[in-house]
Structure formats: C-alpha cells, structure tokens
C-alpha cells in the first residue's frame, strides 16, 4: 500500500489536531511524503474537529481524506459520520469511554479503547489522544517506533519539556493495550 489515509475526529479540545500532527511528523521522520489538513467549524473551540493525514511513498494527490484506511473516533457524532466511509479491511479506533455504541460492520477491524478513562486514571488529563496514538501504532504499524519518538521531540515545544514524559507514558499505555 503506497498511501495510508488517516482520519482523526472528535470534539475541539480533545487534541485531535495535535494527534494528527504527531502522526504526520512520524511519517516525515520515516522519510515519507505526508500531508496534514485540519477541518473545523467557524467556532474555534468546542465544535467538531477533524484532521486528515496522508502518509505515502509517492506524491500525494488529494490531502483530503474521504475514505480513511484508519479512523480514530473520539466522540459519537464523528463515529457516526465517518464509519461507513472506512475502506473495507480498514482499522477503526473508538474511544469507548466516551462512545458506548458498537460498530456493526464486519469488514473492518475495530478496537475499543477506553482512552479518556485511562488517561484520567493514570493522571494524564488531556492525553487520551496519545493513548489512541499508541494503540494505533500497535495495530497498524503506520510508522516506526523511532519515528514516533522523534515526532514527539518535534511536536512538544521545549518550554513544555515536562510534558514529554507524560506523553511517552500515554503512548506506552496505548501501545500495550
């Protein structure tokens, strides 16, 4: 597969765009072509937010992901909106601490991750997104482990260095589920 199309969706404030940025940087660190495209309503906070990330070995055409290979859904409206668009054989990660609905499609791999609850239980508020990313790495191998670590260095600004360990911890929780 030369192009991997990833769609990340949830509420504003869940760190969806940051999650996408991490995935994109990880692709870049693996020396692949990548694009990152946000989409949000006119309100800056609290509305729906989603983010398209493409990782490819070739030049990327449309950066807009319509039929994702990987869908990360962090709220119910996002899951309902995009679940039918996932390509057959694709992977779906559902934050089941927020979404109590099950997915009925048989042709895709669905993982239910209680990311928001795990984040709260482990003293990692706001890092449910990183738990989802850890799980995504484990199930899809969308990038190398090394690339993800490098992406973290790029994405967490030096003035928030104390966040680095917390992020690593969240990624680890996700990847061990």
């Amino acid at each position: 597969m030369s192009t991997l199309n990833i769609l990340l969706a949830g509420f504003g404030g869940q760190g969806i765009l940051f999650l996408g940025k991490m995935a994109a940087y990880a692709g870049l660190m693996d020396n692949r072509q990548i694009t990152w495209l946000p989409s949000y309503g006119p309100e800056m906070r609290g509305g729906t937010a989603n983010c398209s990330v493409c990782i490819s070995d070739d030049l990327i055409g449309s950066p807009l992901v319509i039929n994702p290979d990987i869908l990360v859904a962090m709220n119910l409206p996002s899951l309902e909106k995009f679940i039918d668009k996932v390509v057959p054989g694709g992977t779906v990660l559902v934050d089941c601490s927020i979404i109590d609905k099950k997915v009925h499609r048989e042709d895709i791999n669905v993982f239910y991750v209680p990311a928001t609850r795990l984040a709260a239980d482990n003293g990692l508020p706001g890092l449910a997104n990183m738990i989802m990313l850890g799980k995504m790495l484990k199930e899809t191998k969308f990038c190398t482990e090394n690339a993800l670590e490098e992406a973290l260095l790029k994405c967490v600004p030096p003035r928030k260095a104390d966040m680095m360990e917390l992020n690593r911890k969240a990624l680890k929780i996700g990847s061990e589920l």
Partner: peptide, 9 residues
C-alpha cells in the same frame, strides 16, 4: 483555505 491550513513537509 485548504492550502493555507494544511501542513506538508
């Protein structure tokens, strides 16, 4: 808006 908002290397 798409090109303005998207990220690429």
């Amino acid at each position: 808006g798409m090109l303005g908002q998207m990220m690429e290397p």
